[in-house]
């Protein structure tokens, strides 16, 4: 069965980039431009993985992850957090939310699909750091 991935990103072009790349690699992709829309989609579709931008209007990544994790129906969905804030405080704050991986922007389209596959194949939820070499 094709895994379903939800891309949550407020910037249209960045969302389009991820959606196109993931579709290219054969995934079924849904998209949302804020956390509220994302939550709605998680109620309607059996989503396997969420690519979550942390800074968004209306409902940001932190708030969304909190709701997802506290609901038994969505608590098990894997999450890749994406952020363009590069300070260490931000990184620690994101990892503290219990996401599977943290990826700093700009994402590396070449390693990103590998990372997605890796996370989907993984059974445990131990967080680790991935992303572009700086």
């Amino acid at each position: 069965m094709t895994p379903i991935i939800l891309v949550v990103e407020d910037n249209d072009m960045n969302r389009l980039l991820m959606v196109e790349v993931l579709r290219h690699y054969g995934y079924e992709v849904l998209e949302a431009s804020n956390g509220a829309q994302a939550l709605l989609l998680t109620r309607q579709h059996p989503i396997d993985l969420i690519i979550m931008d942390m800074q968004m209007p209306i409902m940001n990544g932190y708030e969304t992850i909190k709701v997802l994790r506290s609901d038994a129906r969505t608590a098990g969905i894997k999450i890749i957090a994406v952020t363009s804030f590069a300070l260490d405080e931000e990184k620690n704050r994101i990892l503290a939310t219990g996401v599977d991986v943290f990826v700093p922007k700009p994402i590396d389209t070449r390693t990103f699909s590998k990372l997605v596959k890796q996370i989907l194949d993984r059974s445990n939820n131990a967080p680790f750091e991935g992303g572009r070499e700086q």
Binding site: N11, M13, N14, F85, P106
Partner: peptide, 22 residues
């Protein structure tokens, strides 16, 4: 840094996708 990275993500990402001839 945030404001600059967001458009750079698009520029770099789409260039990579094109270069890889996806």
């Amino acid at each position: 840094s945030h404001e600059l990275r967001t458009p750079l993500n698009t520029i770099i990402g789409f260039s990579e996708v094109l270069q890889d001839e996806l």
